[in-house]
């Protein structure tokens, strides 16, 4: 009987990195306040004690600089993990990620590769205001050469992060800062989760809710509410938004004929738009209704708690939308 423990998301992420650092001496972490401080979210607590400051490297406040260091290190044989405290700071690393990390393998004719992971946070409702609350993962999905993972459970976080570290391509790994305390069972033995494989978090027959990251938890809550109204909701999590498991999403849409896509990023030109179009193209003749998208409102995330809460999807909004779509 394999051993399973209840871990928090933070513990699962930390364990993934620790195991990969033990497994492969080329793996190292760099970022702000990651060593003694263990990051502001305390995700990396204890790692510097085991691996030392050479492999858990505190950097100056210079995202572009240390991300560039990581790209160079990856090109020369290391497997760096870059810690971007808030995904909002993606703005600062874009040239390194988009023009360097994503292009090097292609432009070198396959002679160079960039096996690095950029870890960052997303998600609102932490009262962190407009510059620390955005979910900007869609930006990276737009770029050929980058993979983007969005774990929604401790189990997925660990398995996906280990795959990311072992991947020879640059991977952007977004964790919702509000989920670090979420608990879930995680096996003790080594496992990985392949990219591009969606996971049905809850099977249902009347409506499909495609959700990413913390929105999976929101969708599961909404599904519970829907069940009390005799609506059987399926919740499916693509887990990686690129590569995207189009087949699984289309199959679920064909099964239920009604689809809501929930993602905490902005709706416009966002992840929900891409997934909705994939479903519309693949399952059009099996749909009873237009694919409904729910994302953050198209405004800067407010600091005011009631306004911030109203800006991003929650269980009630998903529940209401699903009910309306089913004509209940």
């Amino acid at each position: 009987m394999p051993e399973t423990r209840e871990l928090t998301m933070a513990e699962a992420v930390r364990e993934a990195m620790a195991e990969e650092m033990r497994r492969d001496p080329r793996v190292f972490i760099c970022g702000e306040d990651i060593a003694e401080a263990g990051t502001v979210f305390k995700v990396l607590t204890g790692l510097v004690e085991e691996f030392g400051t050479e492999r858990v490297l505190d950097t100056p406040i210079s995202e572009a600089g240390f991300t560039g260091i990581a790209v160079g290190a990856a090109m020369t044989g290391m497997r760096p993990i870059v810690d971007i405290m808030f995904g909002d700071f993606s703005t600062l690393v874009m040239d390194q990620m988009v023009n360097q990390a994503a292009k090097v393998h292609y432009m070198s004719g396959g002679k160079w590769k960039v096996p690095m992971v950029m870890r960052a946070t997303l998600g609102a409702t932490r009262r962190s205001a407009a510059q620390h609350s955005q979910s900007l993962h869609a930006w990276f999905c737009h770029i050929p050469g980058l993979k983007v993972a969005l774990p929604s459970t401790p189990y997925d976080a660990k398995g996906l992060l280990k795959s990311a570290i072992r991947d020879d391509n640059p991977v952007v790994f977004f964790e919702d800062k509000m989920m670090y305390k979420l608990k879930g069972s995680v096996p003790a033995e080594d496992y990985t989760i392949p990219f591009g494989v969606a996971d049905v978090k809850r099977a249902g027959t009347d409506i499909t809710i495609v959700a990413t990251s913390s929105m999976v938890q929101v969708a599961l809550g909404a599904a519970q509410m829907l069940e009390e109204h005799d609506v059987s909701a399926e919740v499916i999590d693509p887990r990686t938004v690129w590569p995207l498991d189009e087949k699984a999403l289309i199959a679920s849409a064909k099964k239920t004929s009604r689809v809501i896509v929930v993602d905490e990023g902005y709706g416009r030109y966002g992840v929900t738009a891409e997934i909705a179009s994939v479903i519309a193209e693949g399952a059009f003749f099996d749909l009873e209704a237009p694919v409904k998208r729910i994302g953050a409102m198209h405004v800067p995330i407010p600091f005011s708690p009631p306004l911030e809460d109203a800006t991003v999807p929650n269980e009630q909004t998903v529940f209401e939308a699903a009910k309306a779509l089913c004509g209940r």
Binding site: S257, F284, F285, D286, L287, E288, A289
Partner: peptide, 17 residues
């Protein structure tokens, strides 16, 4: 004369298929 059949009803793609 405006030639049109009865106003075509709203129908889902699946139902139409």
């Amino acid at each position: 004369p405006t030639v049109q059949g009865p106003k075509s009803p709203q129908i889902s793609p699946k139902a139409r298929r």
